[in-house]
Design a protein around this nucleic acid. Structure first.
Lengths: 143, 143
DNA sequence: CTAAATGCAAAGCATTTGCAAATAT
DNA sequence: ATATTTGCAAATGCTTTGCATTTAG
């Protein structure tokens, strides 16, 4: 198999990323990371479909096992969405999601939740660790 | 059956609320509304358990059908939570949730999302209709 | 060499559907 | 009187589990 320089560099990256989360490196996992990197937000069925090309025999059980393990190792996280299926994304710093109710397109938006959190903390007796913020509307294309 | 004045007034309220959302008034639905009113946030299995007293023969199918219909009529909404089961709540003005990761306790907090939304809108080409904000941490009791 | 990951089939839950009987309006 | 709701059972769908085989380190 002939790989471009970019492809080789990505591969190295993926290997390092997996290893830094105590995840053994398998071809299936590399491809999962590549898909998540390239698409950003992927549902289970999308992931399964995209993996078929390279791994015709790959089973859904493998996907479920991997997603579970990768979540436990804080390598990725599930984004639960109103009125649609969950998607998965690589772990990154906290951010909000912009979700198009029409086509489902999702983009990340960096957003300072600290103001929100300190406000909520001042109004309640909770100490807050993290937040999930999803904003639903219509993307440019669908308008 | 003997009802207190409060109980009678709640019942009247529930009837009116259901009717204003084009939902036929059944005893099962009245009890669902009462439980949601009293507990605020309820999972499907909690709802089922709490309904057993008054309706020993009530089936899960009825709960699912009702929750679905009530969502379609904007009478209630599902709150999808990270790392735990969804809960359902009566429709109210937009607000955030404070969720205790330890005991699961959920409280509403009114929160002005308009700043957030206009910021997100200025940074993207989305027009935003609504948002879901969940803040996860530890409640006073669990600290 | 050892522990972990994969793939398959089976099992386990969660949710939906079809339908006859009961109920709301 | 009619359309909707209920409750049951069956069907569907999604996720997990067990186990033999393969693979990573």
């Amino acid at each position: 198999m002939m790989l471009s320089i970019d492809e080789r560099e990505s591969l190295m990256d993926y290997v390092t990323q997996l290893q830094s989360h105590q995840l053994k490196v398998t071809p299936q996992r590399l491809e999962i990371v590549d898909i998540l990197t390239r698409y950003g937000h992927v549902s289970i069925e999308e992931l399964y479909a995209k993996l078929q090309d390279k791994f015709p025999t790959l089973s859904l059980a493998t996907i479920y096992k991997n997603l579970k393990m990768m979540q436990e190792r804080s390598f990725l996280s599930e984004v639960k969405l109103a009125h649609q299926k969950s998607v998965f994304e690589l772990q990154k710093e906290e951010h909000a999601h912009l979700v198009c109710s029409s086509c489902g397109a999702i983009v990340d938006i960096s957003l300072d939740a600290s103001t929100l959190i300190s406000y909520a903390q001042s109004k309640s007796s909770y100490t807050i660790d993290y937040s999930t913020i999803n904003l639903y509307g219509t993307c440019a294309k669908c308008q």
